[in-house]
Amino acid sequence: MRAIITWFIKNPVAANLLLLLVFAGGLLSLLTMKVEVIPEVSPDQIEISVEYRGASPQEIEESVIRPIEERIASLSGIDRIISTAREGQGTILVEVLTGWDVHELFNDIKTEVDGLTTLPREAERPIVRRVVLRREVLNLALYGEADRETLKYWAERVKDRLLELSGITEVEYHGLLPREIHIEIPEKSLRKYGLSLDQVAEMVARESLDLAGGRLKNPREEYLVRVRGRRYFADEYRFLRLFG
């Protein structure tokens, strides 16, 4: 250390150049540093959640959690799997190995889960997402003497207006039921074609699926193949052929 100090004393020009270099590097880092008032933290975790209304925790564990765990257990990059079964819902938290490509493992898990066909028919489709930790900036309450549809309409209008503001990337609203599509079939029609409501429900579910089709690879790129067949609007079900 003494030798270095002595050398800089004898070579003041080099010392000044080094000082300028350190100062310039610090200034450049300051100008390019990303600063967030409320930073978004993405831990190396992937969550799979499934709603199964009316099911007990034991039913959730046996019919939902175990099949999913068995499906993804052999994937590379998984450090640990933590599962939770509660009334009406099952959650599987996948912790990713340090240094592993989280995006690649997310795609692998989603492909495997989307291809699972042994879950109960009454269960909702599994939702696979990366865990992102966010902090709320503002809470708004929308209320008034109006029906739910009116409140939902204005909640969506407020959400759209907020998203138009610069600096706002996500807005969520809670407390309102999601829209549902009801399919009504006369009992006479069921008897005519020898069908039950359970059979019709199974056929409708089978005709409204997004299916994983595997992967296509070349030396430089990799593509995930998916068949999109899920229906979102009532008109898409109106002329659905159930058989024949």
Rank of each mutant, 00 (worst) to 15 (best):
T6P: 00
I9W: 07
I9D: 02
L17P: 06
L18Q: 03
G25D: 00
L28N: 06
L28R: 12
S29D: 01
V35G: 05
I38H: 12
V41P: 07
Q45S: 08
I46W: 03
E47P: 05
E47D: 04
I48Y: 10
V50F: 01
V50T: 08
E51R: 09
R53H: 09
Q58D: 12
E59W: 01
I60G: 11
E61G: 11
E62L: 15
P67H: 01
I68W: 03
E70D: 13
R71L: 10
I72A: 08
L75K: 07
G77R: 09
I82C: 07
E87K: 14
I92G: 15
G99N: 14
V102M: 03
L105W: 00
F106P: 08
N107A: 07
D108T: 04
I109S: 00
T117W: 04
T117I: 08
R130Q: 10
V132I: 08
E136L: 05
E136D: 01
N139A: 13
L142M: 00
E145N: 09
L151A: 09
K152F: 07
K152D: 07
A155S: 04
E156Q: 11
E156W: 04
E156K: 11
R157E: 13
L162W: 05
L165G: 09
S166R: 09
S166T: 14
I168C: 02
E172Y: 12
H174T: 15
L177V: 10
P178I: 10
I181L: 13
H182Q: 15
I183T: 10
E184G: 03
I185P: 04
P186N: 04
L190W: 12
L195W: 06
L195K: 07
V200C: 03
V200Y: 04
E202C: 05
M203Q: 07
M203A: 14
V204N: 01
A205W: 00
R215A: 05
R215N: 10
R228T: 03
R228I: 11
R230G: 02
R230Q: 10
R230V: 08
E236W: 08
R238E: 13
R238Q: 07
F239C: 06
R241T: 08
G244L: 05
